[in-house]
Amino acid sequence: MLKVSNNQFYTGETCSLFTTEIAQRTREFHRQIDGYQPTPLVSLPQLASKLGVKAILVKDESHRFGLNAFKVLGGSYALGRLLAEHLEMDISEIDLKTVASKLDKPLVFTTATAGNHGTGVAWAAREMGQKAVVYMPKGSAQASVNRIKGLGAECIVTDVNYDDTVRLANKTAEENGWMLVQDTAWEGYDKIPTWISQGYMTMADEAIEQATAMPEGLPTHVMLQAGVGAMAGGVLGYLADKLGADNFKTVIAEPSAADCIFRSGSSKDGNMVNVTGDLNSIMAGLACGEPNPVTWPILRNCSDVFVSVDDNVAATGMRILGNPLHGDTAVTSGESGAITMGLLHLLANHPEGQKVAQNIGLDQDAVVMIFSTEGDTNADRYRQIVWEGKLPLND
C-alpha cells in the first residue's frame, strides 16, 4: 500500500528553466486565451483539523478552460511557442484567434497521451485553427477517446503501453513531417517538453498568489503527483525558485504500478530508472514508466520524500474530496488528481505513514498544498469509486 524513500540526493539547487520570471511569461500567454481565469484554491479547515495539520489547500483544476484538467496549460503554451518559432515571432505576439491566418495551411500536431495531455493538445490545436492527431495506449478509456475526438482531433488507440505509444507517435511524426508535442523528453528532444513543463507553472503561480491572500498562508508542505514528472518538476521548480527549496517540504507520489520517479530516487546513484510492463493503474495520467530527463534533476535536487502507493489510495482521496466534512467545500477529483489527498490521509492514519509525517514535520503547524489535477474525466469510473465504493482502502 505504501512505499517510502527519503531523498538522499537533496541539494535544494534550483533550475534556470523554471523560475518566477519564466512563470510570468507563461501566465501572460495563458491570460490572453478566451476563458482564462485562475482555478480555485480551496481551503479545507475541517479536514485539516481531523488530519492534525494547520491547513489543507487544494488547487482544483477541474475548472480549467472547461476541460476538467490542468494539462491544457502545457499543451497550449508549447503550441504557442512552436507557432511563434515557425512564424519567426515572439510568443507575446501570438494571438490564438488570428494566428491561423498567418499560415498557408494548418500545421499538424501529434502526441501520445493517457488522456488529459491529448485533450489539451487537441483543444489548443482547435483554438489556434490547427490539426491534431492523438495516440493513446492500449486500455485507454473510451470516454477519453470520445472527448479528444469531440475537440476535432483524430484519436488512435494503440496495442502497446504508454511509453511505447510515445515512441510510435514520434516515429509517425517524423514520417509525416508533423510536429510532436510530447510532455516527456529524450536525447535530442527536450525543447518542447521544457515548454510544456513551463506552461504548468501558471498553475503554481496562481496557487502562490492565492495562498498569499489567504489567512492560512504559504505552504510549508507540498504534495505532487508524478507520471513522467513533467508537472511535478515544473511546479516544484517554480516553488523552489519563488519560496526557496529549504522553506517547504515536498512529497512526490506515484502509483505503485508505474513508480519510475520513486525508483529513481531510491537508486544508489540518483540516475533515472525505467519501469516496464503494462503499467496498469486507475491513475491513467500517472501510468508512465520512464522519467522525464528535463524535470528529473529538479525532482532529485528539491524533493524530500518519494512515495509509491496502490490504486486504492487514490480512490480514497477521491472519496474524501468528493464527500467533505461539514463546512468544507467538495472537490470533484479524478484518479490522478486525488492520489495526494489519499496519501495525506495515510500519513495521518497509517502507522508507517505517521512515521513519515513526523520525519517531515507534518504536524499542527503544517500548511499542506496539493494539486487536484483533474476532475471526473472518466465519469463512469468516478461513480464506481465514489458512489459504489470500488477499491476500498482495506483491500
Rank of each mutant, 00 (worst) to 15 (best):
Y135C: 08
N170T: 15
R147E: 01
D163G: 14
A143G: 07
N170P: 00
I156P: 01
V145Y: 06
S144R: 15
N161G: 06
P137F: 05
V166L: 12
N146V: 01
A141K: 06
S144V: 03
V160C: 12
Y135H: 15
T165G: 11
R167Y: 11
I148A: 05
K149T: 10
G139R: 01
T158A: 12
A141T: 00
G139I: 00
Q130D: 08
A143H: 12
L168Y: 13
S140P: 01
V133C: 13
V157Y: 04
G152S: 03
G150Y: 13
N146M: 08
I156D: 01
V133L: 13
D163P: 13
C155V: 14
E154M: 05
D164F: 06
V157C: 04
T165Y: 10
T165F: 11
I148K: 02
D159V: 11
S144N: 14
T165S: 14
N161M: 05
P137C: 06
V133N: 09
M136E: 00
K149C: 10
N161K: 05
I148H: 03
A132H: 02
P137T: 06
D164P: 01
E154V: 07
T165C: 12
L151R: 03
D163S: 14
V133H: 15
V160R: 12
A132K: 03
R147T: 09
D159L: 11
V133G: 09
A141E: 05
Q130I: 06
S144I: 02
I148Y: 03
C155F: 08
N146A: 13
N161Q: 09
Q130H: 09
Q130T: 07
R167T: 15
T165Q: 11
N170F: 15
V166G: 09
V157L: 03
I156G: 03
V134L: 04
K149Y: 00
K138F: 03
Q142R: 13
A169N: 03
L168K: 15
V160G: 00
D163L: 13
V157G: 03
C155M: 09
T158V: 12
V160S: 07
T165A: 13
R147W: 02
S140H: 02
A169Y: 04
M136P: 00
L151E: 04
R147I: 00
A132E: 06
T165H: 11
R147A: 09
A143T: 15
C155D: 09
Q142A: 08
G150F: 12
G139T: 00
V157S: 04
A132G: 07
V145Q: 06
Y162C: 04
V166K: 09
A141L: 01
T158G: 11
V145S: 00
L151N: 03
V133M: 12
V134M: 04
D163Y: 14
M136T: 02
S140K: 02
